[in-house]
Design a protein around this nucleic acid. Sequence first.
DNA 1: TGTATATTTGCACAATAATGCAAATGAATG
DNA 2: CATTCATTTGCATTATTGTGCAAATATACA
Lengths: 93, 93
Amino acid sequence: MQTETVFKALSDPNRMKILNNLCSKDCPCNVGEVACCCTVDLSVVSRHLSILKNAGIISAEKRGKEVFYHVNRKEVAALLRQTAATIEKTCCS
Amino acid sequence: MQTETVFKALSDPNRMKILNNLCSKDCPCNVGEVACCCTVDLSVVSRHLSILKNAGIISAEKRGKEVFYHVNRKEVAALLRQTAATIEKTCCS
DNA sequence: TGTATATTTGCACAATAATGCAAATGAATG
DNA sequence: CATTCATTTGCATTATTGTGCAAATATACA
């Protein structure tokens, strides 16, 4: 997981909505459920999910004809905390 | 400071270079010093600094004809940690 | 006041990214 | 094996963003 890629993935309003939506769920969601949170076409949501997945923010699991997505909570949180630590630290501290 | 704005501000390679450069310094830098880390025009760096400033990531202080920029370390770190916590937490936990 | 230096801004252009629609793919089921 | 449903992908269009150059602004200083 690369910091820059993650930030880029999170830089779009619809992707943030999608991520928030996924974060609010305890169980993985299929694309249709994810798409409820924004007004764009389902194909656009699919593409956004793909971007989030490539950034390592979410993971996909195929079950039958559906694909279930869930947030890689620990990994994303760890990356953000590590970035926080790097930013907080001056070169002398 | 808004999460989405911050992520958007951090979604460009040159702005990340600029931020890393500023983070590596203990003292505020003027635009020329900041610009060393990337090959784009000085005016472009100035614009990137403006975007980072509007996002609340850095602050500017004018001294004479120079403008010195520094990272708002604590604030940015706090925002990232808070975001990490939100992402980590499921709706039932 | 005129000149030099640091930074910002106006503007045009190039590059990237988001979007919707239609078609393609993959999988269950009659 | 045809049909249906969920998802993805190709393609064209639109919207947004990054960039460089020239000019404007702000400040110091001779």
